[in-house]
């Protein structure tokens, strides 16, 4: 090796050393901004194989995730629910910041797979069919909860989790909390806060709290005063025995309407 080549390698090492602080700072800034959060560990290596792992390591996580998603779609067409769950797990590990993947994976598990399990003609025991149904619903919930852990800065998955808790598990207290969490984001749709109140009204022991929250929404103005909100408030005023002069019908704002 000629002296110039040796000197070039040494200079390269010197430049590499000088660049270490910048590389470290950039890596920290990227992590703080939710970039490069995928953990490419041995578990993922086993699931996607050597070639897939090499592709993921080389910066082709998203195309690999897309290909596996299409494979999961084919599995759906063949109603291979177990295989789908495994593929969804891999796709969401590869692309943890994609809301679409978490949301769709949860929907497939909690809605499609759970219904299919309940209607499974090959399983004669109804108890086992119901058990399988619950397991798929919980799998759907698990996808959303893991999705939220990876995307705590976005409201969409909180909304989906709230819908699942409300419609599939009928856990109105938890659904209310999740809707409220979604509503706390500035870009969340206005219905999130209303839905948090509706669910809280169905949470045993929290009716008074729900009434206060729904009334506060009603006070906010026309945008929140939808027939469902007004009807629920009237109903709760009767149930909670709110004095007549404090009810919404007696307020000047209501009379103006």
């Amino acid at each position: 090796m000629k002296w110039r080549q040796v000197a070039a390698v040494l200079l390269l090492a010197l430049c590499g050393a000088a660049m270490l602080p910048l590389q470290g700072r950039l890596a920290s800034a990227a992590q703080a901004a939710h970039f490069r959060k995928t953990s490419l560990d041995i578990g993922l290596r086993e699931r996607i194989g050597q070639a897939g792992f090499l592709a993921a390591l080389s910066g082709f996580r998203s195309p690999l995730a897309a290909i596996l998603w299409i494979e999961a779609h084919s599995a759906w067409e063949n109603t291979e629910w177990g295989r789908m769950a495994g593929l969804f797990d891999t796709v969401t590990t590869l692309q943890p910041r994609s809301l679409t993947y978490w949301d769709m994976a949860s929907w497939h598990m909690a809605w499609n797979a759970s219904i299919a399990a309940l209607q499974n003609e090959k399983q004669p025991s109804e108890a086992l069919r119901i058990k399988a149904q619950r397991e798929y619903i919980h799998l759907g919930r698990d996808f959303l909860e893991r999705g939220i852990k990876n995307n705590p800065d976005r409201y969409q998955l909180y909304l989906q989790l709230a819908v699942l808790l409300r419609d599939k598990l009928e856990d109105h207290c938890a659904a209310s909390e999740s809707f409220a969490k979604a509503a706390s984001f500035p870009d969340a749709p206005s219905y999130a806060a209303r839905f948090a109140g509706y669910e809280l009204a169905k949470c045993p022991g929290r009716e008074r709290d729900a009434y206060e929250k729904l009334r506060a929404l009603w006070v906010q103005g026309e945008k929140q005063r939808l027939p469902s909100l007004i009807n629920l408030l009237r109903d709760m005023e009767i149930r909670l025995d709110i004095p007549a002069d404090e009810r919404i019908d007696s307020t000047p704002a209501f009379r103006q309407n």
Binding site: A29, A33, H34, F35, R36, G59, S62, Q95, R97
Partner: peptide, 25 residues
């Protein structure tokens, strides 16, 4: 020391997923 940090340039995977890139980054 001798090799470039190519992972630093793999931001598109997360940008596609909706992660916003700051001007500083």
């Amino acid at each position: 020391l001798l090799f470039p940090d190519l992972q630093a340039f793999n931001l598109t995977d997360d940008i596609i997923a909706g992660t916003a890139i700051s001007l500083k980054l």
